[in-house]
Simulated assay, not measured.
Amino acid sequence: MCRWLAYRGGALHPSLLVLDPAHSLVRQSLNSPLGAETVNGDGFGLGWYPIGGDAVGTPALFHSIEPAWHDENLREISRAIHSRLFFAHVRAAAGPPIQQTNCHPFRHGHWLFMHNGRIGGWRHVRRELMLRVDPEFFPLIRGTTDSEVLFHLALTFGLAQDPVAAMRRAVEFIEETGRAHGVAEPFQGTIAVSDGERIWAFRHSSLGTSRTLYVSADLTALREQYPDAERLHAFDPTARVIVSEPLNDLPGAFVEMPESTVGILGPDGYRDEPFLRAAA
């Protein structure tokens, strides 16, 4: 349905991941062999935390309804920005219209959020899910996607205090609501959330058939394994990227994240842990 990537590490130009690799995110927007749709041309977005001082500030956003492969502004911006943490997303619309307010990532304060997947039976459960959003957050919903409602449900359930617990409660509520309406697969998708210091990446579906998600391998180990791969030296040793599809075909460079897992990428490195059980 969509493709995305989330980067954390030494400051670099997003173009090094969004544009330059053999199977970059922009190339995935035109040809996505592991995606539910081959083409993801219904807009894109870039969200990044600007460098300046020690404190994490409000992330910046750039959204466009142009196909990513066609937009010259994306090329200019991604080569000019420097960031230690950024999100990028290419969209394949599955019902909600093509408009800027429906482009990911979404932002609230210093939080970024993006999603690939769907809430099953959306037209049947939409009202009930939206009414569960806290009145503090409800007026902030600007678009018409299920993904934005998911984000605001997570905010309602305490994303700022405990991102994993909040996302678990949000997905459980979606699954409970969907099943009450007879929806066979209430939730499907991969999610990325960040507070500017850490990235939480979730892979889960109600039936255990989640969209693909990969994390890059430790860069120091990759450099030892491929000493002649000059491209690896463009990145800081702490650099890691979480992606819908591998950005190249270098064996071992990307490892698939297990089903119903949350991957946590922060100053102390990367780890993953169980998230939710799929329905039996």
Rank of each mutant, 00 (worst) to 15 (best):
G196L: 09
Q28K: 07
N40R: 10
A60D: 13
G143R: 12
A253C: 06
S15L: 02
M167S: 04
F86Y: 13
D249N: 12
R107L: 14
E172I: 08
D272L: 05
L12H: 05
E128L: 15
V149C: 14
D71H: 13
R198Q: 14
F173N: 08
A253I: 09
R142F: 01
W69M: 09
D134K: 07
C103I: 00
V39A: 13
L74T: 09
V241W: 11
L250A: 10
E245Y: 05
P237W: 10
R127V: 09
G35V: 05
G47A: 01
R179K: 07
T38C: 10
G120K: 05
E176D: 13
V171Y: 03
L61N: 06
A180N: 15
L232D: 09
R271N: 01
F173R: 09
V125N: 04
L250I: 14
I65T: 15
P139H: 11
T156R: 11
G95P: 03
A22F: 00
F187G: 00
G52Y: 06
F235Q: 10
V125H: 07
W200P: 06
A239D: 12
A280Q: 12
F44E: 04
S78K: 04
M257P: 00
M257H: 01
D54E: 13
N40Q: 06
F202E: 05
S210C: 13
R127C: 00
A229F: 11
D146E: 05
F137R: 06
A154M: 13
L247K: 09
T101E: 15
M114R: 00
V56I: 15
G266V: 10
D42G: 08
P267S: 14
A6G: 14
G45R: 05
R179D: 00
N31E: 11
Y214Q: 03
N31M: 08
A239H: 04
E224G: 12
Y226F: 14
P246T: 10
S205I: 01
L19M: 13
G120Q: 09
R240K: 14
F106A: 07
F106K: 05
T238F: 00
F87R: 08
F275Q: 08
H104C: 04
H82S: 14
Y49I: 09
E259G: 05
G57R: 12
